[in-house]
């Protein structure tokens, strides 16, 4: 009964939507789709990460002038962080751009979207320890001063809460979508 219900109402619904004025709003072909905007965002972040490499060594040399004991390890960790972030964002950008809604099947698009979304979250788990290490090194440069420690702790708690929420939401959606 319910399938017949759906069939009858689907046809009349589409006919009503066809008649409605809302269906015919003008489309601006110069705009980008959601996936194109996402790819642009990844590309921008890759460029920002790559450009950020430029200030790491000058900062190290500047700090070395005041404190000659500053280890070379500090800037190398930052360089590694930005290189990995730039590479990951570029890879994600290319991946999202490869999704073609006009030629691929629905299952392929679904799998690709969730694959890249999963990789994005996995990359965060790769970058997070390096970011924490950088925060630790910067605290060390400030000699573990009280307020610096408090700020770092607050930022860590807030970031952790947001990250876990996004992770659990994603895993729930992932199971539902490909079920």
């Amino acid at each position: 009964m319910e399938i017949e219900y759906l069939k009858e109402n689907w046809e009349s619904s589409n006919a009503a939507l066809e008649r409605g004025s809302q269906s015919r709003k003008n489309i601006d072909p110069r705009q980008k789709t959601t996936l194109q905007r996402l790819a642009s965002r990844y590309r921008r972040m890759a460029i920002v990460s790559a450009v950020s490499l430029c200030w790491v060594m000058p900062l190290y040399f500047r700090l070395s002038e005041e404190n000659p004991d500053t280890p070379l390890f500090y800037p190398l960790v930052m360089v590694a962080f930005f290189l990995i972030a730039a590479g990951m964002d570029y890879w994600l950008c290319r991946g999202i751009q490869s999704i073609d809604c006009a030629t691929m099947s629905v299952e392929t698009v679904l799998k690709k979207v969730y694959f890249y979304r999963k990789r994005h979250i996995q990359f965060i788990f790769i970058l997070m320890p390096i970011a924490l290490l950088i925060v630790y090194l910067m605290l060390a440069m400030f000699n573990f001063e009280k307020y610096a420690l408090l700020g770092a702790a607050c930022g860590f708690m807030v970031g952790l809460a947001f990250g876990l929420k996004i992770l659990f939401d994603f895993m729930r959606d992932y199971k539902q979508v490909l079920n």
């Binding site: 809604c101 006009a102 030629t103 099947s105 698009v109 679904l110 959606d173 979508v177």
Partner: peptide, 17 residues
């Protein structure tokens, strides 16, 4: 059929709660 393909692909690539 092609319209179905494009529309469904667009919709499934934008899923959220």
């Amino acid at each position: 059929t092609w319209i179905y393909r494009v529309t469904l692909n667009t919709c499934v690539s934008s899923q959220r709660k």
